[in-house]
């Protein structure tokens, strides 16, 4: 399959890249690892007139502990996330989810920034970052802003990112002592995309759940917080009965936008969401001690 024709630029700095995005605003797309964009271009679902390839910009691939949290450069690949001792120690669910994205070859190319910017409804990373919390750093030629991850995913394949902005960094907060994390997904066997996936980050103090963030992917049109589930967990001892009741509400926020395709019906996705919410919360609670 052949993509439409496009003009290609390979800037060597973020300033140069953002200048190109301003100059070709509305026409240009950012090419990161390319493992979401190129397949869409081959199917002619995307036909950008200009590609700005940020693969040649030094300094966008890093994992740094700073200010109690961790900052991740937008061009950091799934493989780097999966094998990083900093990610494994601080956000085990992110290391685990990254190790289960697609396959070895795709994990060598796909990036955290690309996954967030593309916002595939069946992507793993958007839900995981949503469950951790934090922000996305977006730069234009003239300015930089932090977008709270809770406001980043807007709609199907749509984010709060403007078309002259590039994601340069993802900032993750330190997780409180007594926090456990887990990601549980039912994957499509060929692509390994999530038919449904649930990420859970729960904090337990003195036997009681003091904080919980649970995010669902694959089921609806975008990664979505399961706030009703979170509310049921908070302030309670995480018994089997509480986890089961919380998980049973995990599809509530996506029930109006449930995906239905050749892989799974809407009803089946809703069911899987509840099942995997149960698994993820149970594993996160066990890890929280």
């Amino acid at each position: 399959m052949v993509t439409s024709n496009f003009d290609y630029f390979a800037p060597t700095s973020v300033d140069e890249a953002t200048s190109l995005l301003s100059r070709y605003r509305g026409e240009a797309k950012v090419l990161a690892g390319g493992h979401s964009l190129i397949p869409m271009m081959k199917l002619r679902l995307a036909e950008p007139g200009v590609l700005v390839d940020i693969g040649g910009i030094d300094g966008l691939s890093y994992i740094k502990e700073e200010g109690g949290g961790v900052s991740i450069g937008s061009m950091t690949t799934y493989r780097e996330l999966a094998t990083s001792s900093v990610i494994q120690a601080n956000y085990p669910l992110l290391a685990d989810a990254s190790a289960r994205v697609a396959d070895l070859q795709v994990r060598n190319r796909g990036t955290i920034g690309g996954s967030l910017a593309h916002s595939d409804p069946a992507g793993d990373i958007p839900a995981v970052i949503l469950a951790i919390g934090g922000s996305v750093v977006a730069r234009t030629r003239r300015s930089s802003r932090d977008i709270n991850i809770d406001r980043f995913q807007v709609d199907l394949l749509t984010t709060a990112l403007r078309d002259n902005e590039i994601i340069t960094e993802i900032k993750l907060p330190a997780l409180a002592a007594g926090t456990g994390t887990a990601y549980s997904k039912f994957h499509q066997p060929a692509s390994h995309y999530a038919i449904t996936g649930v990420a859970a980050v729960v904090t337990v103090s003195g036997g009681t759940c003091t904080d919980a963030r649970v995010a669902v992917t694959g089921a609806g049109d975008k990664a979505t917080r399961a706030r009703r589930t979170e509310r049921i967990l908070k302030g309670k001892e995480l018994t089997q009965a509480v986890i089961r009741r919380a998980a049973s509400r995990a599809a509530a926020e996506v029930e109006d936008s449930l995906n239905e395709d050749i892989h799974a019906s809407a009803e089946y996705r809703a069911h899987l969401t509840q099942v995997h919410a149960g698994y993820a919360i149970e594993q996160a609670a066990a890890a929280a001690g």
Binding site: Q105, N108, R109
Partner: peptide, 15 residues
């Protein structure tokens, strides 16, 4: 040195 699927990489990215 890393395994990639060459149907999902533009030749210009390998410059």
């Amino acid at each position: 040195g890393e395994a990639v699927k060459s149907c999902t990489v533009f030749a210009v990215q390998a410059d």
